[in-house]
Design a protein around this nucleic acid. Structure first.
Lengths: 210, 210
DNA sequence: GCATAAATGTGACATTTATTACACAGCATG
DNA sequence: CATGCTGTGTAATAAATGTCACATTTATGC
């Protein structure tokens, strides 16, 4: 299990009692890079708080399509799993581990209890929802107003913020994340290369714009 | 001002003290159909709780584009205005009154105070965020995966849920809400008419599908 | 009723994106 | 080094949507 110090470092705004409650009732779980943590329609039985690694959140289509929305990093929680008041909530999103990860799983029963007991938990839930709401707004802005070239640039920048200027993704993976085809991404990346925005390699490229 | 009974009817889950606090500190404001209540980039100085009428929430583009996301009805609050913890938040959305409306404006200072004082306010904020987060997910689903014909159908259904089967909107208004052109909407509506989904009139049409 | 504005219909064409098909390059494995 | 797999390049074509131009219809003010 985690030490209370690690927990404090990850979630600095909590109350003392909350750390103890989490240590007592949350389960520390692990998952490997590539694993699917949550699927659309799946029942939510526990909240997910990221301890280590990175998770990607997607909107998922009925027939296999995916659209990348945002990353979840250590110290952050998956908003959709922070169910309160009602049980049997179903996930509206797809969550994938993209590195090996560790996360805390908190049974829904405790989440409701803690809302009554810990003010800092309440704040944490609100803060989580607010920040994810804002991420969704950005996603809508891209997909409602921008063409694929700008959406790709936006996507790459999120990637760079997460993992640095070397983007280790194949064209196909990017195409899946943006719900388009590999050819489109190849063409657009080629254009970016011509414009001097990237240096391309096999399986990866460097973002050198600005 | 409102009576405490009206307030209880609109917000049935609140505590007694919260009703009184709202009556004391919130301002009851009015706006006319068509008025813009909140623009992107505008500073948020108070929360908006709808008392009467309907508000439409949009994502707004830099150069005039709009994309309709969801309706706000009496008893609901505008999530973006429920600022907590930090001040000087700027709106990421556009809010328009589409009927004459009445709403309660609650200064940000009280919102923070009430988070500490009233559990039911805390729950109300979380519930608001959660439900709006889900609306945004639906919007992303449409705009990321669906062609304009399906998005139009989805849009019309939301309209029908709000105001009944007679949709009193011009093609241009619909086009604005979906960030497309009037011609596209005209063509698609004509197709729906051929399919027997709608009866068209000037300035309005009836949804008769199913 | 006439003039005007607003709403709608429609065709032609441009642009963006999706789809299909195939070539080829790099890398791993035997 | 032959083989095959994965990743990438590219062209041709189709489909969806955007844009422009203009006609027609309906409402509105005078």
């Amino acid at each position: 299990m985690l030490s209370i110090e690690q927990l404090k470092h990850l979630f600095p705004d909590w109350e003392a009692g909350l750390y103890e409650a989490v240590l007592e009732h949350a389960e520390l779980k692990e998952a490997n890079a590539g694993e699917i943590l949550l699927k659309k329609g799946q029942n939510i039985k526990s909240a997910m708080l990221v301890v280590e690694g990175t998770i990607k959140l997607y909107q998922e289509d009925e027939d296999g399509g995916e659209y990348f929305m945002y990353h979840l990093n250590p110290g952050e929680a998956c908003a959709v799993t922070l169910v309160c008041n009602y049980h049997h909530e179903q996930s509206q999103v797809l969550a994938k581990a993209i590195t090996d990860i560790k996360f805390l799983a908190i049974p829904v029963t405790y989440m409701e209890k803690w809302l009554n007991e810990f003010k800092s938990w309440h704040y944490f839930v609100i803060k989580t929802y607010r920040s994810r709401y804002e991420e969704l707004l950005k996603t809508i802005h891209e997909v409602a107003f921008k063409n694929m070239d700008e959406r790709l640039e936006f996507y790459i920048k999120k990637q760079v913020d997460q993992f640095g200027v070397t983007v280790k993704l194949t064209h196909q993976e990017i195409a899946n994340d943006l719900n388009t085809s590999r050819e489109v991404i190849s063409r657009l990346l080629k254009k970016m290369e011509h414009n001097g925005w990237i240096n391309m390699n096999r399986n990866a490229f460097d973002w050198i714009k600005k």
